[in-house]
């Protein structure tokens, strides 16, 4: 009882924070409500920071008019492709290097260098290689996702319990079966641990790619609006992207719950 009423209170407080921020934003930007105290011109504030009602109106038009769906779809496809390709590559290379100590020792400095490099600077190269369509954004996302997954899988395979491994061998597992029955599941638990990060980075890759050069996607919308100083549309794009990221994260949580049943969670007893 108490738990549920306090969580309802929490929700209320969280909603109040959101409403408060919007109210403040409204009061500070709409010309004529407050006397200007920082900018000389009363319209300056709304020029730089937009006006919440106009921003919400813009979002409303996007969804009712249906303009946004194509762009959201493009961003979603780019995100999912980047995530899928980056994850598969990360798992494959991670397992390979973890099981091949020599190769891993040789490649170690290069892996570190590639990971240290700010990957966004690759965007121009990808535009040259893959054009301004989806492929260049996917490539950018892949470079971001790959390393997260790679390092986690590498760690996961290295830390497989030697007893579990020895037991599997005694039960008759061939090297190939060890890979499938022991290394891969063990690595997957680490991949899932990094799922939130890697989906998030796939999204970042897609949006940044769109922003830097494209003809579709929410990042492109923002870039367009910025070009004509339409700050309300920029903010609308930011809000839509944030909501989109939250939904992605929520889906990841659902998937995680479904797939990680075997992992101990602290305090699983039922409250009576």
């Amino acid at each position: 009882m108490r738990a549920s009423s306090s969580s309802a209170g929490l929700r209320l407080a969280q909603a109040a924070v959101l409403a408060g921020v919007f109210a403040l934003w409204h009061v500070l930007t709409v010309p004529g409500i407050l006397p200007p105290f920082y900018f000389d011109d009363p319209h300056r504030a709304s020029f730089f920071f937009g006006e919440p009602l106009k921003v919400l109106g813009r979002i409303w038009h996007w969804f009712v008019g249906g303009d946004i769906y194509r762009h959201l779809g493009v961003t979603l496809v780019e995100t999912l492709l980047a995530f899928a390709i980056g994850t598969v590559l990360g798992i494959a290379v991670g397992i390979w290097l973890a099981l091949a100590p020599l190769a891993s020792a040789i490649l170690d400095p290069y892996v570190k260098a590639l990971n240290a490099m700010p990957r966004v600077i690759l965007a121009p190269i990808f535009f040259v290689w893959f054009g301004l369509g989806i492929a260049s954004k996917v490539a950018l996302g892949v470079t971001l996702v790959f390393f997260i997954v790679f390092f986690n899988v590498y760690q996961g395979v290295r830390e497989v319990s030697p007893v579990v491994l020895a037991n599997a061998r005694m039960l008759g597992a061939s090297p190939r079966q060890l890979l499938r029955y022991v290394y891969l599941p063990s690595a997957m638990s680490w991949v899932f641990a990094s799922l939130h990060n890697s989906v998030g980075l796939a999204f970042v890759g897609a949006v940044v790619g769109e922003y830097l050069g494209s003809a579709e996607g929410v990042g492109y919308l923002i870039h367009q609006a910025e070009g004509v100083f339409d700050i309300n549309t920029v903010f609308a794009g930011i809000l839509v992207l944030t909501a989109f990221a939250l939904i992605l994260d929520w889906i990841v949580t659902l998937v995680e719950k479904k797939l990680m049943v075997w992992q101990p969670r602290s305090g699983e007893t039922e409250r009576i």
Partner: peptide, 28 residues
């Protein structure tokens, strides 16, 4: 190959349930 080994430490695969752990050798 002709021996079965019961380890002193826990050696079950944490990602397989009890039944799946028992049958894994047959699967191999």
């Amino acid at each position: 190959r002709r021996a079965g080994y019961l380890f002193q430490q826990d050696a079950l695969m944490p990602w397989r349930n009890a039944l799946e752990n028992i049958t894994v050798g047959l699967e191999f």
